[in-house]
């Protein structure tokens, strides 16, 4: 199977984020990493290739710094990478991102496209589903397990409140992958070395702009949430914190 994996570079989980001076976006001088659900999507693709053969291609849309997540994916075993490179891909709405990716891969015949189920930065949880619409393909979301059966797939989907569902689906298809379905691999030294010689195709905004069209969503402002609750902060050495907490549990929360 020929599989495309869409991956995104996002700020590191515990990176302290600050607003820029105009309050329109975050300050981008932070540490980045691959979006965690996308790492699971890549892992699933690499396992499918190991089982069924084929090719794994990774794509990202983002500025020059985003190349890092493609390099890491190549080091883990992806065969080649496509970088939609440019600042224009930051703050794009999910439909525009989906159209840009579809335009970038339109001459290739993928059997499957994987995305993470959502990104940890914007959290729209839409790009994969929209990519299926742009391509006219079926899709399924929040997938935990994939098995090739005949000409199609047997999937395990996660539902709410501890429920699951199996389903059958034809190819080609788009799947959004849930975290935790597999154990993530590390890149080996050999993999890191080989990655340097793997192909990386670069496309710019101009290459896909005509397919993207107008942004449908506008982020008017970004700000720190207004707190809904009064929070009391307790600090001090651990023993003192513990005493204060127990006092609250006993006298205010009345659970001791």
């Amino acid at each position: 199977m020929k599989i495309l994996v869409c991956i995104k570079q996002v700020p590191q989980k515990d990176a302290p984020l600050k607003l820029n001076e105009s309050g329109s976006w975050i300050r981008e001088d932070v540490s980045y990493e691959v979006n965690e659900p996308d790492a699971y999507a890549l892992e699933e693709a690499l396992r499918q290739k190991e089982k069924n053969g084929g090719e794994v291609v990774v794509v990202t849309a983002g500025p020059a710094r985003a190349q890092q997540v493609l390099r890491e994916a190549l080091a883990k075993g992806a065969d080649r990478a496509i970088h939609l490179e440019g600042d224009e891909f930051v703050r794009l709405d999910p439909a525009s991102t989906a159209k840009a990716i579809a335009a970038a891969v339109k001459s290739e015949n993928f059997d499957l496209i994987f995305t993470g189920l959502q990104s940890d930065d914007y959290g729209y949880a839409q790009t994969g589903v929209l990519l299926a619409e742009v391509l006219g393909w079926p899709h399924s979301t929040i997938i935990l397990h994939i098995a090739k059966e005949g000409d199609g797939l047997k999937l395990k989907r996660e539902l709410e409140s501890g429920y699951f569902q199996d389903m059958e689906m034809p190819l080609p298809a788009v799947l959004t992958i849930q975290s935790g379905g597999n154990k993530l691999r590390y890149a080996t030294l050999m993999g890191i070395k080989q990655a340097k010689n793997k192909p990386m195709t670069k496309l710019g905004w101009a290459d896909v702009a005509s397919a993207v069209g107008k942004n449908g969503l506008k982020i008017e402002r970004l700000y720190i949430p207004v707190k809904q609750k009064r929070t009391e902060t307790i600090d001090g050495p651990p023993a003192e914190v513990a005493r204060k907490l127990v006092d609250k549990m006993r006298n205010e929360m009345r659970i001791l």
Binding site: P225, K227, Q228, K229, R230, T231, E232, T233, I234, D235, P238, A239, V241, A242, R243, L245, V246, K248, M249, L256
Partner: peptide, 24 residues
């Protein structure tokens, strides 16, 4: 999480939890 907390403790839980167990 602090946005919806009634009580916030900024610190190392590996130090605070043992102290809290004793106190409880």
């Amino acid at each position: 999480i602090f946005d919806i907390a009634d009580v916030a403790v900024v610190g190392n839980l590996l130090e605070i939890v043992p102290a809290l167990i004793e106190e409880v």
